[in-house]
Design a protein around this nucleic acid. Structure first.
Lengths: 236, 236
DNA sequence: ACCTGAACACCGTTCAAGT
DNA sequence: ACCTGAACACCGTTCAAGT
């Protein structure tokens, strides 16, 4: 039922999952779906629950314990495991943003995360702040403003800043009569400088030169380290 | 032209900004818009540029310098100024996620941010990491999984974790035959415990008990402090 | 109980015409 | 050069019927 929707989304994107298309996929030739489901929103809610269940399963299979005194590496592993399944469903983050709270499976994921922090010495107050600070990173994706890869809603986000100093504004320039690409460096000198220096490490691409996985872990570790510091301060 | 679209979105939400509605609002009675614009995507790209320009204007009016040796408080002010305009356009963050890279105005915003970091002692490499780590927080909003307020895409996000241990799953329970609310505490013990302890500070609401502004600043400061530490390490 | 067809009110977009 | 009307191919959703 819902699995068909996930398959369609994986193959042709979220915008392809339509009631008529779903009916086609399921053998049923028409909108008999409305007997089993009240609104389309229900199937969308359903598929975030399916994905969240897949995340929980992956976390358990990876053998990441639900409680540990050494909370940090465990939480890191759980989050990276979640990220791995989200990377298989690039359309899912967009759905998680709008309907994350409707899924018991994501609540279970978060409940485990809180349990892990509690057993690691977090007060409820700090655990609460931690969930806010991590935001969507807690469940394996981050929200970037720029996505040179072009695929909107990609898990883990695309790259930020310099990455699209070329990509973004080249597009803007051609479609909207912006400045020609030549004086981009003049318009955005700092981004251009940043890009020039970083891109030279990976010379064969000026757009997709960000290592998304490494950047995700950089931001994650920055937050986890900061939280650990606060936890320790609370103890001493 | 684009201002009409922003007004419609502010009043009736993003889903209300439709080509026919826009034509109505503009006096023009039909789809003459297609003479001035090729696709609807162009007007969407256009309005993120309008909002980003509003952000840049607000930052300049607030007198936040574009370069400073003491980069941290300046960056903090810039980001919080950006957040203030995003709070006036709750639908905007959702658009920024998908089409952020298409706007010269957001590129300008980011360029200023990079310039600020550079003048504050960041290497290009660390500035690049910083943009990734901050993600959408750099431009004033954060992505939360749960939004008890119900308004999807609200700037700064709704509240996370415990906030919807009640809200989210009560909804799930009623619409999808989940468990009755009574044993939610049994199903999600850690979230329930967290909520019980935190909510008691603000007893008159079990759902919207998160101080979004405070939580946004908590996560922001966690990241800024971590980045400053890395910057100092690089110096010594 | 379960499915179906036709229809309704909406989209974005095209295109031949109007002035 | 600028606008318009009618039409097309799609949506989600309803509803009276079918078995």
């Amino acid at each position: 039922v819902l699995n068909a929707a996930v398959t369609v989304a994986d193959e042709d994107g979220l915008q392809a999952v339509t009631m008529r298309r779903l009916a086609d996929e399921l053998g049923a030739e028409a909108m008999s779906l409305y007997y089993h489901v009240a609104r389309k929103d229900d199937v969308l809610d359903g598929i975030v629950d399916v994905i969240a269940a897949e995340i929980n399963e992956a976390v358990e299979q990876a053998g990441v314990p639900a409680a540990a005194a050494d909370w940090k590496p465990v939480m890191r592993q759980r989050i990276l495991a979640a990220r791995r399944v989200l990377l298989r469903h690039p359309w899912a983050p967009g759905l998680f943003e709008t309907r994350g709270g409707a899924s018991p499976a994501v609540l279970r994921y978060y409940d485990n995360l809180v349990g892990l922090m509690r057993s690691g010495g977090f007060s409820n107050d700090l655990a609460h702040h931690a969930l806010h600070a991590l935001g969507s990173r807690a469940i394996g994706f981050s929200q970037e403003l720029f996505d040179p890869g072009g695929q909107a809603g990609r898990a883990g986000g695309g790259s930020a800043g310099g990455g699209s100093a070329g990509g973004g504004s080249t597009r803007g320039g051609s479609t909207r009569g912006g400045p020609p690409p030549e004086d981009l460096a003049a318009q955005f000198p700092h981004l251009a400088g940043l890009m020039a220096e970083i891109a030279h490490d990976d010379p064969d691409s000026t757009l997709g030169w960000c290592d998304d996985q490494a950047e995700f872990e950089f931001g994650l570790d920055l937050l986890l380290d900061g939280l650990d510091r606060l936890r320790r301060e609370h103890f001493e």
